[in-house]
Design a protein around this nucleic acid. Structure first.
Lengths: 186, 186
DNA sequence: AATAACCGGAAGATCATACTCCGTTTTGTG
DNA sequence: CACAAAACGGAGTATGATCTTCCGGTTATT
């Protein structure tokens, strides 16, 4: 792959991620190409059909988030600490992009990511259960759903930076709540 | 206004609210009319221009939510209790509809609702501050933003009933977190 | 029974976005 | 440096999904 092609591809991905957060949904192909500073033809060469670009964006973001989870588990002293690190990292990486995940749930690429996410969360949860940092009744599914909630922008036209700040803030309070009530569903 | 006209209007509003939650955004006029069991012509007679229907929906839901807040303040023993009641009621009434609020923020009807919401939340907060049930550094804006977050569906194709259950659950944990840390922003 | 208000839905108008195509430019190689 | 292959740009067309109108038929009210 030629250097300029790789550069264009990466720019398209990054521009799409920005736009998705800004407008809260699927951006038009024209807008993505403009933002990336490439022609619309270039976009279609890299991502041939209708959904290819958005698929690539979601997989890119999802894989990075899963990796951050792995790191969090590996590098944290406690399960609670791993949970905190993972969820904040998910906000940094996935904020906004969860908005367009739904259509991907029916594609061949999904089951593999689902498995990887579950495996990672299970390891995280088991560690937390073992060291007592995460309540027994908190499950991987609970964490997954809460993570999605905090990665959703509020859809009232806030600036992305503000959006991110608020998400982290809400998550902190939520995590405090998780610690407070060890005998209730998350 | 004739009885059948009032009935049609109410059905259109309710159908729109349902659809907004189900599809997570603005429904097509055709879909709303179908769901309501009325012709598309009827929809246009009640709501003449492009945004009229969605405006009416948001105002309907918003006004009901504000009223529920007033009741919560009036009928609760403590500010903390009022806060809990208000936010859960907001989920029951507004879940999903926050998704389409943004465009309304630029219309003449908005400032009035904003003022009413602020007044209600201020009363709620002041009560809570006075009786110590709500931390000093929790503001009306904090409550407003958190309420919006818990009224956002997760956008992964969940059934509305499941969506609602999860929202209440997440809110409970968040409220526990608010209580736990009286000296940090909400 | 009379009339004014309301309803239904086919058909046309409108608009945003997807996508193609080909002449031009850039990159990598001998 | 020269040349071929790969990549680029963007005007213009295709497409499809709503929005909106209109008027003959229906229902409520007196």
């Amino acid at each position: 792959m030629r250097a300029d092609a790789r550069r264009s591809r990466r720019r398209l991905l990054d521009s799409a991620i920005e736009l998705i957060l800004e407008i809260g949904g699927e951006p038009s192909r024209d807008a993505v190409a403009d933002r990336a500073g490439v022609g619309i033809g270039t976009l279609y060469r890299h991502f041939p059909d209708k959904q290819a670009l958005l698929h690539a964006v979601v997989l890119d973001v999802l894989d990075r988030t899963i990796n951050q989870g792995e790191s969090a588990v590996a590098e944290s002293a406690t399960g609670g600490e791993a949970l905190r690190r993972y969820m904040h990292a998910a906000i940094d990486t996935s904020l906004g992009v969860v908005n367009i995940v739904h259509p991907l749930l029916d594609t061949p690429e999904w089951p593999e990511r689902r498995t990887a996410t579950e495996a990672m969360l299970d390891r995280l949860i088991v560690t937390g259960h073992r060291d007592g940092a995460i309540a027994r009744d908190v499950t991987a599914a609970d964490i997954a759903l809460a993570t999605i909630r905090f990665c959703r922008p509020l859809a009232i036209g806030l600036d992305p930076a503000v959006e991110r700040r608020i998400a982290h803030q809400h998550l902190d309070t939520y995590l405090d709540g998780l610690r407070r009530r060890p005998n209730r569903s998350a």
